[in-house]
Amino acid sequence: METMWAEVVADGQPPLPNSEVVSKVLSQNSSNTTFFKNTGIATPSSKSKSAGEEALHEELATEKQGSAVPHQELEELKKKSEVADEALKESNLILSQILSLSTPGISSQP
Rank of each mutant, 00 (worst) to 15 (best):
Thr39Asp: 07
His57Thr: 11
Gln65Val: 10
Glu58Thr: 07
Asn29Gln: 07
His71Trp: 15
Ser67Glu: 11
Gln28Trp: 03
Lys78Tyr: 12
Lys49Gly: 04
Ala42Trp: 08
Lys78Phe: 13
Pro70Val: 06
Glu20Thr: 14
Leu60Ala: 10
Ala42Thr: 04
Gln65His: 13
Gly66Pro: 07
Ser27His: 01
Val69His: 09
Gln28Thr: 03
Ser23Asp: 01
Ser27Pro: 00
Val69Leu: 10
Gly52Cys: 04
Asn29Tyr: 10
His57Val: 09
Gly66Glu: 09
Glu53Arg: 12
Phe36Met: 09
Phe35Gln: 01
Lys78Cys: 04
Leu74Trp: 15
Val69Ala: 12
Ser23Tyr: 00
Lys49Asp: 02
Ser48Arg: 07
Lys78Gly: 05
Glu76Asp: 14
Asn32Pro: 00
Ser31Thr: 12
Phe35Ser: 09
Pro44Thr: 01
Asn32Ala: 02
Thr43Trp: 02
Lys78Asp: 11
Gln65Arg: 12
Phe35Glu: 07
Thr34Asn: 15
Asn32Leu: 01
Ser81Phe: 04
Glu20Met: 08
Ser81Ala: 09
Thr62Pro: 01
Val22Gln: 01
Thr33Asn: 06
Gln28Ser: 05
Val83Gln: 14
Glu63Met: 14
Ser46Pro: 02
Ser81Cys: 10
Pro44Trp: 03
Thr34His: 10
Gln28Phe: 01
Glu75His: 13
Ser81Val: 07
